[in-house]
Each structure stands twice: as C-alpha cells, then as structure tokens.
Simulated assay, not measured.
Amino acid sequence: MDYERARAEQKLQLQELENIRLEAYKNSRLYKEKVTAVHDKNIKRREFQPGDLIFLYNSRMRLMPGKLRSRWDGLYRIERVEPYGVFHLSHPSSSELIKVNGIRLKLFHSEKMARNQELEIFLLEDPTTADD
C-alpha cells in the first residue's frame, strides 16, 4: 500500500515538473518574440537608389592602427540595385563595377553639402619632425 501511494505521488511530481517545463518553454518563446519585436523596431531601414552617392566601409582598416583614420572610402555611385541588398558601385576614377553588400554602405548627404557655402577641409597627415 505504501508503494502505491509513493508511485502516485511520483506521478504527480512528474506531471508538475512537465507543466513547469512547458510553462518555461512558453515564457521563453514569448520573451524571444518581444526581444525580436524591439530589435526590429529599432533597425533603421537604409534604402539606396541608383545614382546615389555613398561611402564604402573598408573592413581592412581595422587591422591598421590609427584613431583618426577613416574607415570609409568614397565617393562611389550606385549603378545597379539587385535583390537581397546587393549593389553595383562605380568609382569616378575607374570604369569597373564593384559588387558590394548593402551593409557596407553609408549615404553621402550631398544636399547638406550644397547648402553650406563654405567648406573647410582638414587633411590628416603624419606630423613633420624636427629632422625634416
């Protein structure tokens, strides 16, 4: 008789444990959905059109030291847009088209530059030493 009661109690404990596991699974799924919704809401959509001027991220600059060196190359012009974020770029000094993922692009805001009449350019060069 004692075994029957222990067996029944063990079955209840296993069912309770299964219910806790299912509830934890449901809570985890709800949490992931909420986090995904918040993440997707904060993503800025960047849409580029053919003819836009853009900067191209140079990933090799990470290997070179220098805080003030720009990691953005430019200006490139978007010639063609393909599905899934593939862009064909042309540089004014060459006739080749470069095929690039859209994640590596940043829009050049030429309208702002056109409004500013005066533009000051700073060239970052290595400092000259007394020996030069």
Rank of each mutant, 00 (worst) to 15 (best):
M1R: 12
D2N: 07
R5A: 11
A6E: 11
R7G: 00
E9K: 13
K11E: 15
Q13F: 08
Q13S: 06
Q13L: 14
L14D: 11
E18L: 13
N19A: 15
E23F: 02
A24H: 09
K26Q: 14
L30S: 06
K32A: 10
K34Q: 15
K34W: 05
K34E: 15
K34H: 10
T36A: 14
A37Y: 04
V38H: 11
V38Q: 13
H39C: 04
K41C: 09
N42Y: 11
R46K: 15
R46S: 07
R46E: 03
E47W: 06
E47D: 12
E47Q: 06
E47A: 06
Q49T: 11
P50G: 03
P50T: 05
G51T: 02
G51M: 03
D52Y: 01
D52H: 08
D52G: 01
L53C: 05
L53F: 08
L53Q: 09
I54V: 15
I54L: 02
N58K: 04
S59Q: 07
S59P: 04
S59R: 06
R60Y: 08
M61L: 04
R62M: 08
L63N: 11
M64Y: 09
M64L: 14
M64K: 11
P65H: 03
P65W: 01
G66W: 01
K67E: 12
K67N: 10
L68V: 02
L68S: 08
S70I: 02
R71I: 03
W72R: 04
D73F: 08
D73R: 02
I78S: 01
E79Q: 11
E79V: 15
R80P: 00
R80C: 07
V81I: 07
E82C: 09
E82P: 00
Y84M: 06
G85N: 06
V86Q: 05
V86Y: 01
F87V: 01
F87G: 05
H88F: 15
L89P: 02
L89T: 03
S90R: 15
S93M: 09
S94F: 05
L97I: 05
L97P: 00
I98V: 10
V100T: 07
V100E: 12
V100M: 12
N101D: 12
G102L: 05
G102Y: 02
G102Q: 03
L107Q: 13
L107V: 02
F108I: 02
E111M: 06
K112M: 08
A114F: 08
A114V: 12
R115A: 14
N116D: 12
N116Y: 05
N116G: 06
Q117R: 14
Q117V: 06
L119P: 00
F122P: 00
F122C: 08
L124Q: 07
E125Y: 05
E125S: 13
D126Q: 09
D126T: 08
P127G: 03
T128Q: 09
A130H: 09
A130S: 12
D132T: 10
